[in-house]
Design a protein around this nucleic acid. Structure first.
Lengths: 148, 148
DNA sequence: CTAGCGATGAGACTGATTCTCAGGCTAGCT
DNA sequence: AGCTAGCCTGAGAATCAGTCTCATCGCTAG
């Protein structure tokens, strides 16, 4: 598949702006990772990112991938989620698409879901505890429709 | 510290019964792990378990700790929780104490909390999705009172 | 008391993630 | 456009949690 110049989404643009504001220089590796993440609707593992980038025209070193993901996480544009699979996954944070995950204990499939009442319950707790809550992660696990 | 014969709690007793029912023989290593877990009110990592047991009179091999924890998890008497700290934690499941965790991003402190509306929201979702939900894990992260 | 077989643990191994450090490239200055 | 300081990269070593292997130990039934 030829590399086509895609239109940058709001997330990629906003991320690049935040990187610049935070004093980061531009770099090919980071641009490739940001661009790849922007195309995803759900979480990718570092290994998947490495493979996907290698399969394109732009391989990025493993150390760079982890470094970049950490920077993006700190900037608050990427969310690191641990789904109990012995590896972390990362996904872009889009203001209009907050969601959580269902994880199949058998095949490892990851399915996204969102639920307003759940969010409200979490927000309510966040205000009640003596703790500056900055984020939350909710994982439901069990068996997916195929494995059941 | 001298080893004192403590009174077994309901959890330890029930766990030993389930182990026997499941056909497991008795063993010193497993008894030590079960006894240690019974004293905890919140989650311990495998490494902490290894250290705590070594600090007592009863060191247990790492392989045994993981094996035992896995058996207890399968029996449904222990819960494996991933708090995004690159290591799993384990805690006894007591029928009267279902709870979730607040994790401090700075010092790593783990604080338990429970909330009925949150549980109801999760139960509600569990019934709506095309997925056999067997369990859930909710982690709020941010800064604890000390680190703020 | 003894044999059979589950329980245990030392240590090798695996897989994910982090660290190190030499060389490349960007951004700012002339 | 040319130059340079210092951030950006990536190859590979190091680390760390967790898993596997296998010889030995020690319950328990008989």
């Amino acid at each position: 598949m030829a590399k086509t110049k895609k239109k940058e989404s709001q997330w990629e643009t906003a991320t690049n702006e935040k990187l610049a504001e935070a004093g980061f220089r531009r770099g090919g590796a980071r641009a490739a990772v940001v661009s790849l993440l922007d195309e995803q609707s759900c979480a990718l593992s570092a290994y998947e990112i490495e493979e996907l980038l290698a399969a394109r025209e732009r391989a990025v070193g493993r150390a760079s991938i982890y470094r970049i993901l950490e920077q993006l996480d700190e900037l608050g544009v990427v969310s690191k989620v641990e789904l109990g699979q012995a590896q972390a996954r990362y996904e872009p944070i889009r203001p209009d698409h907050h969601h959580h995950h269902l994880v199949c204990d058998k095949c490892g499939a990851v399915i996204a879901f969102d639920d307003a009442p759940l969010e409200r319950a979490v927000d309510s707790i966040s205000k009640r505890v003596d703790f500056a809550v900055e984020g939350h992660e909710i994982v439901l696990h069990g068996l997916c429709a195929d494995c059941r």
